[in-house]
Design a protein around this nucleic acid. Sequence first.
DNA 1: TAATCTTGTGGTCAGTAGGACAATAAGATA
DNA 2: TATCTTATTGTCCTACTGACCACAAGATTA
Lengths: 245, 245
Amino acid sequence: MPTRHIPSAPKHSHVEPLNSPQNVIQALSIDNLIFGLDHDQLKILLIKHHDPTHKDKWALPGGWIRYDENLRDAASRLLEELTGVKELYLEQLKAFGRVDRFPNDRVVTIAYYALVSAEDYPFIESQSTSFARWFSVNNLPTLIYDHAEIVNHGIKFLRHQVCHKPIGFNLLPEKFTLLQLQSLYEAILNVKLDKPNFRRKIMKMNLLTPCNEKQQGVPHRAANLYRFDDEAYRKLSEMGFAFEI
Amino acid sequence: MPTRHIPSAPKHSHVEPLNSPQNVIQALSIDNLIFGLDHDQLKILLIKHHDPTHKDKWALPGGWIRYDENLRDAASRLLEELTGVKELYLEQLKAFGRVDRFPNDRVVTIAYYALVSAEDYPFIESQSTSFARWFSVNNLPTLIYDHAEIVNHGIKFLRHQVCHKPIGFNLLPEKFTLLQLQSLYEAILNVKLDKPNFRRKIMKMNLLTPCNEKQQGVPHRAANLYRFDDEAYRKLSEMGFAFEI
DNA sequence: TAATCTTGTGGTCAGTAGGACAATAAGATA
DNA sequence: TATCTTATTGTCCTACTGACCACAAGATTA
């Protein structure tokens, strides 16, 4: 279990765009797109912007890249500073660098996207803190700079990725039911799927290991729990298997 | 028809890594991965590295991003400086920023990949000039810095993209035969495809418009020429159509 | 205790896409 | 005219998929 803490405030953030410390690459920032699943809704974690000129606007959690830090390490560090979660699914999304995207300076940002499960970050349940809050992707607030563009790109990218790589599992707890998995795809892709057909398709891939355990505390027949089998996926991939939903 | 010229030398390149001019973002460079198709072989355009410490090594054509220049514009400008080709398929690949990827300084590079057709850049035919040369992706020379990593990532990405988006057409002349298209996929994916089945699959998509013209100067039955129909693709995409090979 | 409700799980059936492969057509060449 | 090469059409068969039905397993309720 990773240790968890709720940080008091991000150390470096877009709150002070013009006061970036000297041990960082001035022209380069990181912005994290953090996806989570909450009650079958796809959500994004945003932080409140304190700059008075951008009152009531929200921002992607981000910060500056240090001179002696790899890009992914910077994204990972910033993510942990905000959520306390380590070692989760984290991939580069894209670099955004419109000349006028940032005020008074030329700053290119490299966006990363992360998938967190409610298990690793139970904080997802409580709707808000003073500075960070989860928003449904269908109901986003006004964002600063070009962050809306980044978010839109990220959602499109996630929709694509989730159909071609088994990354959706990172949004679920380790043990999950087939209906939870189906709801995940329904939430991300915004479609309705047929239960028996979805089940058949998934099971035929041989990527899920039954836990021989049943769901607890539901007011109806309990479903079997499964876990994703990384090893099996690796082997199948080597043999040319392509994950497709 | 775009105007074509063979430039004398790239104005800014990785030849002088430590003398980047002052009107650029010091920490950020662009590297272009330029793909072309030559006699059914997938090729990449590389430039010779003049730095004596890297004798006999080759490099991706790249350069510095100006302060007042969008990322894509920088990639496009550098591409044109090298090949004289404008307005071709150009997309961001990924940012590469390992701390030690560049000597004596911290430089993050944003890699773009471009697809050029022999039609737009007939230069692809002649194997070499003093400083630029096409290499088959199956027989690459030693590359400087982390360029081998970038190239490998780019090839993998192209293989993926070409299966899910109709971008391969950018490597062909405007009018092409079905066999040319098939050979393109065979070259990029490194597989052998069945001609009648490939034909059926492509034609069913309704993305090709017959030119009502036949191939010229072949010593056998001439095939029909087709062109890719952007408009049809746009419409089908809106209706949820997903290109798949 | 029995009826009923909800979700899980296992099936059918028909339409379709795709791989293997045969057959014919159209030109060019010998 | 025979032969060669590639283009193009068609057929057979299997596997996947969407629509949909039916029963199972518990929990709740009358």
